Simulated assay, not measured.
Amino acid sequence: MPPRPRAVPSFLRPAAADPAPLRGRVVLVTGGAQGIGRGIAQAVLAAGGRVLVGDVDVEAGRACLDEWQAGDAAAFQRLDVGREASVQRFVTGALRRFGRIDGLVNNAGIADPHTGPLERLDLREWRRRLGVNLDGAFLCAKHALPALRQAPAGGAIVNVASTRALQSEPDTEAYAASKGGLLAFTHALAISAGPEVRVNAISPGWVATDGWRKPATRRSPKLSRADHAQHPAGRVGTPEDIGALAAFLLSPKAGFISGENFVADGGMVRRMQYL
């Protein structure tokens, strides 16, 4: 008689993957109608969550809802993160529509990093960059925190920074300062908001967003072999890459992670380059 097979210990059995780790959760995504923000919003929906997209571009926001056909799981509201009254209406609208807030993704920002030589940079432009990229995250967190603290399984905030907080090109001081400030804001808020709310950051590198714009401006990205080859991962990033990471950080799977910055750039910040 052949010997009976031994039972595999439970800790050696692979855990079943949850196809919907954000099921029942409500996530606010600022700047969520195009680009990386849209990738994050779609990842939330794919993970079973519900999403309220906030964006200054109403046309882009409505296009998202038309294309997603997600029913009550997705909604759009115009949002200017640089104006506190607009942020208050956004948070109130989320609570009125969904009754709860479980996650916040601070993605809205001025994307163009170049402002010219510092000695010619106008103070108003400097303040505008910080006012949108950094003040916007502060305002959204400020007004969403009371609801996030009440989230049944704990709240989560993801701040979208940039690898430009860690390395720079010339004439990008205002952008770099805003994203560097966002990283400091992330770890400070993680200490203040825990344990009810976890706070983390993602710093994307080169992400091709041309195909993630509103229909009127959407196009295929023009990328060369050299563009892809310079990345240790072998390619330029996509909004899906950042969306997958954001969905993880918003989910219970990341329950022991807070105050961290996750660089998603295909390995570029680790590559030494000399002229």
Rank of each mutant, 00 (worst) to 15 (best):
P19L: 01
F248C: 11
I257S: 12
A201K: 02
I202D: 01
Q88Y: 04
I157G: 13
V8L: 15
R235M: 05
Y274L: 14
A70G: 09
A190M: 04
G54K: 13
G61R: 07
A60M: 03
S178V: 03
S224N: 02
F256H: 14
P14A: 05
A193W: 05
G205K: 00
I40E: 00
R4L: 14
A108K: 09
E169K: 15
A188N: 12
G259D: 03
E84Y: 01
G136N: 11
A85L: 08
P9W: 00
A190N: 08
P252N: 05
L123K: 03
P2S: 13
G35L: 04
A33N: 07
P5W: 03
G109R: 10
G49I: 02
S162T: 00
I36L: 08
R83W: 06
L95G: 14
V51N: 10
D80Q: 07
A184Y: 06
R38K: 15
L275S: 13
G205T: 02
A20D: 05
G93F: 02
V8G: 07
P195Y: 02
R127M: 13
Q34I: 08
R149A: 08
G116V: 11
V207Q: 03
G255C: 13
V51Q: 09
W212H: 11
F262Y: 14
L52D: 03
W212S: 11
D80V: 02
G31Y: 06
H143M: 04
V199N: 08
K179A: 04
A190F: 05
G211A: 15
A63C: 12
G31P: 10
S220G: 09
Q88V: 15
A188L: 12
W68C: 10
R50W: 09
R89I: 00
S192M: 11
A233W: 00
L166C: 01
A153D: 15
R97G: 00
R124F: 10
V26S: 09
V56N: 07
V58W: 05
S220P: 04
G234H: 01
L249Y: 08
Y274S: 15
A176F: 03
A144Y: 07
N133A: 07
I36M: 03
A108V: 03
K253N: 14
E173F: 06
L123A: 09
A208G: 06
R89V: 01
G39I: 04
P232L: 01
H187M: 13
L65A: 07
A177D: 01
N106P: 02
Q77S: 14
C64D: 14
D66E: 15
A7M: 06
A70C: 07
G24L: 01
V81H: 08
P146T: 09
Q77M: 15
S168Y: 07
R4Q: 14
M272I: 13
D55H: 11
S10N: 12
V197R: 03
A60Y: 02
I101S: 01
P2R: 14
R271P: 04
G109T: 10
V29I: 10
A190W: 05
V132P: 04
E196V: 11
A75T: 13
G35K: 11
P146Y: 07
R120W: 04
L130S: 11
A144N: 12
A111F: 08
T92W: 01
L52K: 09
R4M: 12
V132H: 03
